[in-house]
Structure formats: structure tokens, C-alpha cells
Amino acid sequence: MSIALIFKGFFAHTLRELLSRHAFRLGALGLLSFAILWEIVSRSGWINPVMLPAPSVIARSSVELAANGELQQHVLNSLWRAFLGFAIGSILGLLLGVAMARLPRLHSLLNPLVQIFRAIPSLAFVPLAIFWFGIGETSKVILIAFGVFFPVWVNTYLGARDTNPLFSRAAASLGARGWRMLVFLILPAALPFIIAGTRIALGSALVLLVASELTGAQFGVGYLIQMSQQVFRVDHMFVGLITLGLLGFLFDYLFVCGLRKFLPWYGAENNHANGTRRMDGLKSGQD
């Protein structure tokens, strides 16, 4: 265990760098071979090309969709919804997580309730949300916020509850008290947890986004897929799917880049043995 820790601590960076160059080339190779194989299968005549359009056909369709501005409109609408829902859900999750960690009474009061809500897969709320809020923007944003809320709440709660007592003692002896303790110690010390929860929430946001758009919208990537099915444009369905894949990948990538840039210490401190233990104990809100 100690060897593994030392290894992680000292070599993680160089190893990652070394791997990444190889990994990048291999990844590109994998993608390319997959596309070629797909193209061959699709053109071979074994499968109806309408059901499985070739990548070249999909590429052409996406250029068409982009040329008349339709694709951009779908993407922008989806992004805006996802952003709104994500912002609302994660802010609420953060606030309630911290409040419940700091106020034991509030925790006792709300915990069973939140736990039961958390146990219900958020997709199950789609019909109800539409019934209550219609198929407009409100229901979509609320659904996304709902899905984002739980992972952020759980992890924030854990992080804010289990502050390393060494840190809180150090801060207290340096004069931190009351709100200063919260802002300058509890919150930053919980950051690794909050970050992990937020990253999980990015995935949830995408799931709820599509689910809510499938039920109807004016624009949106999920809607594009749904509508294309009704008019038998399988190629357009694939454009939607690939767009979703790329968006999800891009979000996660940007998230990690942001972390490296703004929180260089994140993941780099393996010197606290209990830090690693606590990271293993992470819980995801919805799976």
C-alpha cells in the first residue's frame, strides 16, 4: 500500500504525461478503425443502409444540418437548458449539503426525506414534471436540476461533515471562527468532494436533458433524435447521438482542464493518508 502511495505521489504526473501521448495516438487509431469498419459494414449490403447509414453519410447529413443552422439551434437550446438546470441544481445541492453538515438538527429533520427522494430514479419524474409544468422550458430545467441536485448534495454533505479535525484545529488556533471558519476552512476543505459530486452531476445533467427533450420541444438535440425517428431519418438520429457523445466528452474534458488550471493541488496531495481513504468513500447521487 505504501509503495503504491509513493508511486502515485511521485510519478503520477510524469506517468500520465507519458501515457497521454501514446494514449492519444491509440485513441485516434481506435476511433478511425471503428469508423472504417462501420463504413464497410454499412456499404457491404449485408445490412439495410437506411437502418445503419455509413459514417460518410452521417457526416454529409450533419454538414447539411449545420449549413441551414438547424444543428446549432438544437445544440444551443440544449446547452442553455443543461446550463440552467445544472446551475440551479448544483447551487441548491451545495447549499443544502453545507447546511445539513453544519446543522445536525436540520440533518435529522431532512435526511429521511431526501434519502427517499434520492432513491427514486429521477427519470421516473419525467411524466409528473410534464403533467405539472407542461412540455415547456420549465419542466426540462426542473428535471435537470433535480438530477444534478443529488450527487452534488451527497458529496458536499460528506465533505463538509468530515472536515479533517487537524485543519479545523489549525484554523481555530489562527483565529477562524463562525462564518470565517465556514468560508475559509469548511468549504475549501470540502472542495475535493464537491468537485467529485459536480463531475458526476455533469453526467446526470445530460441524461435528464435528453429524457426531457424526448418528450417534446421546439429545439434540442434530444428532440432532434426523437423527431428524426418519426420521419425515418436514421442518419439524423446518428447526428444527434454523436453530438451528445461529443458534448459529454467535451464537458468532462473542459472540467478536468479547469481543475488542472485553477486547482493545481487537487489530486496532487496524497500525503494525507486519510485523504485517499476519504476519496474512496465517495458516493454518487444517482446512477
Binding site: 487537524l166 484545529r169 489549525a170 481555530a172 488556533s173
Partner: peptide, 18 residues
């Protein structure tokens, strides 16, 4: 209670990692 008139250096590394 703790106060800044008593500075403490701990055995374990207690610098704030963030």
C-alpha cells in the same frame, strides 16, 4: 478555546493543501 495568541505547530502536516 483556541485563539491566535497561541500558535500551534502540529506533528502531522497541517498546512492547508488548497
Amino acid at each position: 478555546c483556541p485563539a491566535p495568541d497561541r500558535g500551534v505547530v502540529f506533528q502531522d502536516y497541517s498546512l492547508f493543501p488548497w
